[in-house]
Protein backbone atom coordinates (compact mmCIF):
# COMPACT_ATOMS: atom_id res chain seq x y z
CA UNK A 1 0.00 0.00 0.00
CA UNK A 2 1.19 3.54 -0.75
CA UNK A 3 0.58 6.53 1.49
CA UNK A 4 1.24 10.13 0.52
CA UNK A 5 3.42 11.77 3.14
CA UNK A 6 1.55 15.04 2.57
CA UNK A 7 -1.62 13.40 3.89
CA UNK A 8 -0.15 12.31 7.22
CA UNK A 9 2.44 14.99 7.98
CA UNK A 10 3.54 18.60 7.60
CA UNK A 11 6.91 20.21 8.18
CA UNK A 12 9.40 23.00 7.68
CA UNK A 13 12.89 23.25 6.20
CA UNK A 14 15.78 25.68 6.38
CA UNK A 15 19.54 25.99 6.20
CA UNK A 16 22.44 25.21 8.48
CA UNK A 17 25.48 26.19 6.46
CA UNK A 18 25.63 23.93 3.41
CA UNK A 19 23.29 21.46 5.13
CA UNK A 20 19.53 21.65 4.90
CA UNK A 21 17.33 20.69 7.81
CA UNK A 22 13.90 19.20 7.16
CA UNK A 23 11.55 18.72 10.10
CA UNK A 24 8.62 16.42 9.38
CA UNK A 25 5.71 16.37 11.86
CA UNK A 26 3.01 13.71 11.82
CA UNK A 27 -0.57 14.84 12.44
CA UNK A 28 -1.21 11.96 14.89
CA UNK A 29 0.45 9.06 16.70
CA UNK A 30 -0.44 6.60 13.95
CA UNK A 31 1.26 8.86 11.43
CA UNK A 32 4.32 9.16 13.65
CA UNK A 33 4.53 5.37 13.84
CA UNK A 34 4.48 5.22 10.03
CA UNK A 35 7.12 7.88 9.43
CA UNK A 36 9.23 6.44 12.26
CA UNK A 37 9.20 3.07 10.54
CA UNK A 38 9.32 3.95 6.84
CA UNK A 39 10.83 7.43 6.52
CA UNK A 40 14.39 6.30 7.16
CA UNK A 41 17.59 8.27 6.59
CA UNK A 42 18.43 5.89 3.71
CA UNK A 43 15.06 6.46 2.07
CA UNK A 44 15.47 10.25 2.33
CA UNK A 45 19.04 10.10 1.00
CA UNK A 46 17.87 8.05 -2.00
CA UNK A 47 14.93 10.41 -2.59
CA UNK A 48 17.14 13.52 -2.70
CA UNK A 49 19.62 11.95 -5.11
CA UNK A 50 21.04 14.74 -7.26
CA UNK A 51 20.30 17.35 -4.58
CA UNK A 52 21.94 16.00 -1.43
CA UNK A 53 25.62 15.21 -2.07
CA UNK A 54 26.47 14.28 1.53
CA UNK A 55 25.11 12.07 4.26
CA UNK A 56 21.64 12.26 5.75
CA UNK A 57 21.19 12.16 9.52
CA UNK A 58 17.87 11.43 11.17
CA UNK A 59 16.82 12.51 14.68
CA UNK A 60 13.62 11.58 16.50
CA UNK A 61 11.40 13.93 18.50
CA UNK A 62 8.55 11.67 19.68
CA UNK A 63 7.32 14.49 21.94
CA UNK A 64 6.41 16.51 18.84
CA UNK A 65 5.60 13.44 16.68
CA UNK A 66 8.47 14.71 14.55
CA UNK A 67 11.59 13.59 12.74
CA UNK A 68 14.42 15.95 11.94
CA UNK A 69 16.63 15.28 8.94
CA UNK A 70 19.98 16.93 8.32
CA UNK A 71 20.97 16.74 4.67
CA UNK A 72 24.66 17.55 4.33
CA UNK A 73 26.18 19.15 1.22
CA UNK A 74 22.81 20.10 -0.17
CA UNK A 75 22.64 23.86 -0.68
CA UNK A 76 25.35 24.51 -3.26
CA UNK A 77 27.85 25.83 -0.71
CA UNK A 78 25.47 27.42 1.75
CA UNK A 79 23.18 30.42 2.00
CA UNK A 80 25.63 33.16 1.06
CA UNK A 81 27.68 31.35 -1.57
CA UNK A 82 24.96 29.28 -3.21
CA UNK A 83 23.73 30.14 -6.69
CA UNK A 84 20.47 28.29 -6.08
CA UNK A 85 17.18 30.12 -6.33
CA UNK A 86 16.27 28.31 -3.10
CA UNK A 87 19.66 28.82 -1.48
CA UNK A 88 18.28 28.23 2.01
CA UNK A 89 16.37 25.04 1.26
CA UNK A 90 13.07 26.63 2.24
CA UNK A 91 11.08 24.50 -0.20
CA UNK A 92 12.72 21.15 0.57
CA UNK A 93 10.16 20.19 3.22
CA UNK A 94 7.47 20.52 0.57
CA UNK A 95 9.60 18.42 -1.79
CA UNK A 96 9.84 15.66 0.80
CA UNK A 97 6.11 15.77 1.55
CA UNK A 98 5.54 14.81 -2.09
CA UNK A 99 7.06 11.41 -1.33
CA UNK A 100 4.90 8.29 -1.21
CA UNK A 101 5.66 5.76 1.49
CA UNK A 102 5.49 2.06 0.63
CA UNK A 103 3.96 0.38 3.65
Amino acid sequence: MKIKLLEIAHGRSGDKGDAANIGIIAYDEKGYELIGKYLTAERVKEYFKGICQGKVERYELPNLRALNFLLHETLGGGGTVSLKHDAQGKTLAAALLRMELDI
Partner: peptide
Amino acid sequence: AEQLVYEIGDP
Protein backbone atom coordinates in the same frame (compact mmCIF):
# COMPACT_ATOMS: atom_id res chain seq x y z
CA ALA B 1 5.81 22.48 16.31
CA GLU B 2 6.81 23.62 12.80
CA GLN B 3 8.86 26.46 14.27
CA LEU B 4 10.42 24.14 16.87
CA VAL B 5 11.90 21.91 14.16
CA TYR B 6 13.10 24.86 12.08
CA GLU B 7 16.85 25.03 11.52
CA ILE B 8 17.79 22.63 14.28
CA GLY B 9 20.43 19.93 14.24
CA ASP B 10 20.57 17.28 16.96
CA PRO B 11 17.41 18.05 18.97
